[in-house]
């Protein structure tokens, strides 16, 4: 890409990120594209090596001539609204490819691991004919799971030594992976970490890692058992073993990203998943979930707009301030305030 084109892309992203004039037109066009870029989400705890892996994957795909973009999100300060965005430091292997674009984004106060406009920006990048977009989430805590309906393939990255089997059984991050990877697998404990995740997955999945065909024998687990909501959600994402023609079992791979060890295999696994997800209609189902989540977010932003405090501002909007004063003084409850304010919303 020539500098002029990079500038155009960068400025369009700024427009949408700042919700400046022109945003509505850009989004109206972008969301009407017949097809978006394949979105790969990379998430995991701080220090797992997300930025280094994203750089390695970018270089891997860019070497095949693919047009590829990265959106790397880091947290904003809750106090100043500012941010130090450091994911670019690891852009060393991919920087030489002219067919790549890298943008650092501040979460700008948004919780959930992404920024408010991240999904919109995927649409915008699709408008600029990117074939693939990698999103790097903020260093994720256990509940930063918004990526799971934004990405077509979510990679959960972890490292040896973070905790025992109980951590892997917990809700949140461990439930959203389409592919799992242990980075820094040259460190002691990599096999333990791998086994821990595989065991946790084994409680929910049948079949071998990757694509499993329907077995010839009937499902040994009687279908008369009630299906728990958690299991039902996994089946919606990855299929129901014994029922569907093909199901997906999230593979767990070992990597040393700094040496590129395991990176080509990981890239292949991601492609296999996206191809499977496309072919079986799961991808379309996921994009419906994504659309619903986005409508809800946009709706709540529009509804809250009259009362929302500007990012970084200290002043509480006056309509809310009198209620805040009464709540702080022990004269009202937040729920009473919310009901009263809702009734005053402009129709």
């Amino acid at each position: 890409m020539e500098p002029a084109e990079l500038r155009r892309i960068a400025r369009t992203i700024s427009t949408v990120e700042n919700q400046a004039d022109g945003t509505d037109e850009v989004l109206a066009q972008a969301y009407r594209l017949p097809r978006w870029a394949d979105v790969i989400g990379v998430t995991g705890p701080p220090g797992a090596g997300k930025s280094t892996l994203v750089d390695a994957l970018t270089a891997h795909w860019a070497a095949n001539g693919e047009r590829i973009a990265v959106l790397a999100i880091d947290p904003s300060s809750p106090y100043s609204g500012g941010a130090v965005l450091g994911d670019r430091i690891r852009r060393t292997r991919s920087v030489g490819y002219a067919n790549t674009y890298f943008r650092s984004l501040s979460s700008r106060g948004h919780v959930g691991g992404l920024s408010e406009t991240a999904t919109d920006l995927v649409a915008v990048l699709s408008l600029f004919e990117f074939r693939r977009v990698i999103i790097e989430t903020v260093g994720a805590g256990q509940s930063d799971v918004e990526i799971h309906d934004t990405a077509d393939c979510t990679l959960v990255l972890t490292v040896p030594g973070l905790g025992d089997g109980v951590q892997a059984s917990k809700a949140g991050l461990m439930e959203i992976g389409d592919v799992f990877a242990i980075n820094k697998a040259d460190l002691p404990g990599a096999d333990d970490a791998m086994r821990t995740i595989e065991n946790a997955l084994g409680a929910a999945y049948m079949g071998n890692p990757g694509i499993s065909p329907r077995p010839n024998i009937p499902n040994p687990v009687s279908s008369s058992y009630a299906v728990s909501p958690g299991l039902a959600a996994l089946r919606r994402r990855h299929g129901n073993f014994g029922e569907d023609d093909e199901t997906w079992v999230p593979p767990v791979l070992k990597l040393v990203s700094t040496d590129n060890d395991g990176v080509p295999e990981l890239a292949q696994t991601i492609d296999t998943f996206i191809e499977w997800s496309d072919r079986t209609g799961r991808r379309r189902q996921r994009s419906r979930e994504r659309a619903y989540a986005q409508v809800m977010r946009a709706l709540s932003a529009l509804l809250l707009a009259p009362y929302a405090r500007a990012p970084g501002a200290v002043q509480i909007p006056s309509a809310v301030d009198s209620w805040v004063e009464r709540i702080a003084g022990g004269e009202a409850s937040p729920l009473e305030a919310a009901r009263a304010l809702m009734n005053k919303l402009p129709r």
Partner: peptide, 14 residues
Amino acid sequence: RGLLDAGMEVIYTG
């Protein structure tokens, strides 16, 4: 760090 505290978005190249 100082610019962050002032509310700016700072990208560091390394």
